[in-house]
Design a protein around this nucleic acid. Structure first.
Lengths: 209, 209
DNA sequence: GCCGTTCTGGACTATATCGTCCATAAAAGT
DNA sequence: ACTTTTATGGACGATATAGTCCAGAACGGC
């Protein structure tokens, strides 16, 4: 109650504390991506982050809150990257480059682990409603980046006037997520490429030239 | 070694034993769909199936094997259903009916839990390679049902000769899976409809008439 | 009906995992 | 410099969970 003007930081953090917290979250993000949320124990996180039990519980009241921090961190990270890839999108070639970057990145691990956001969503959506809500917002924002680019293309006359940027963005995102899942399961990038190429073809059908 | 001609049944099962085993698997299938595999405990399964610890371990050496049985059972179930929906597919309208059935079913739970196979795949693909392989085969078979229908359409002149049934099937499956995931996360069927409609539009672009 | 096999109930063990606690160290505020 | 707050290490406790075991009931083959 002493600092009513700022609800966010429950407590003051020294630089050292902030660094520890960041190390914990970074380790948890990585572990939960590779092993899954439920299969990652706090002891795994403690070991990987070179911290101790008291540090974990100093920063997070329980595992659920750590998971939420992981979701928030991962979402911020993915959106940051995608902002870089999409904020200047204004041509079909740009969309192809976007596709290529995602495929290439996923090819490095042969599709393993899937989409950093998608796998969290699949595991958490029916288990933690707050995490689900954050993930839902993140997908909306991600689609929003696509939609904004598509809208620019439409307004520039690259896409026909009847192209619906929002629906196209959702379609692209679904193809991407479905592609990730099939690639992860098959341990083969191919289905992801096919899925994205179909979605791109659909966008292409709205091209003016 | 006494029954080298049949590797499958490790042991004889009485009708009662078979019924118990089926009850265990059915309960586990349901629980793991709703709560996730790792979040489902053997005690949950025991209680839901009205069995005891010894019954669980009489039929499955460990949890991992139960999970594999769950994967196999769910895959068989989904493929059975999809066989019914797709084996007579031979028109675009049939494809639309297929889409509608899936959307309607998923709408009943507002998208919750996602695809019965997809959510298992997401959780298990990087955790149990045998489960992953089974799921990968199941997706291939599911796509195969779609591909067979699309091939019939092409051979009947409904689709143009340059339509690629396999690629179209993979695209449809990716759109379906991505749609499931977005719907599950948003708790809203809409993105699934949009994703499938785009994929159908893509098929439509190969229509002759 | 008898005998061996399968099936069942449930107590029991071992361990993994979450979470608590406290003494001490480090840092910040004044 | 001194006090207060924040950070740390790690022992400890409580519980959840996987897995074992065995005595006895039910069942199938003959």
């Amino acid at each position: 109650m002493s600092r009513p003007e700022n609800a966010q930081p429950e407590r003051r953090l020294t630089p050292r504390g902030a660094a520890t917290r960041a190390r914990i979250v970074a380790a948890a993000v990585e572990l939960m991506y590779m092993k899954g949320v439920n299969a990652t124990t706090l002891d795994d996180v403690r070991a990987a982050s070179n911290t101790s039990k008291s540090q974990l519980y100093n920063h997070f009241p329980d595992k659920e809150e750590l998971v939420r921090a992981v979701v928030a961190a991962r979402a911020a990270q993915v959106l940051e990257r995608e902002r870089g890839n999409l904020e200047r999108l204004k041509s079909f070639r740009g969309l192809v480059r976007w596709r290529d970057a995602l495929v290439q990145r996923n090819a490095l691990q042969n599709g393993a682990y899937g989409c950093a956001l998608g796998s969290l969503a699949s595991e958490l959506a029916d288990q933690d409603d707050r995490a689900r809500a954050t993930l839902a917002e993140s997908f909306v924002e991600w689609e929003g980046l696509l939609a904004a680019g598509l809208r620019r293309m439409r307004d520039d006359g690259v896409l026909k006037p009847d192209a619906d940027p929002d629906k196209l963005a959702t379609s692209l995102m679904a193809a991407l997520q479905g592609g990730y899942l099939l690639a992860e399961t098959a341990r083969d990038i191919k289905p992801m490429e096919i899925a994205l190429d179909m979605a791109l073809d659909h966008v292409r059908s709205f091209l003016t030239a």
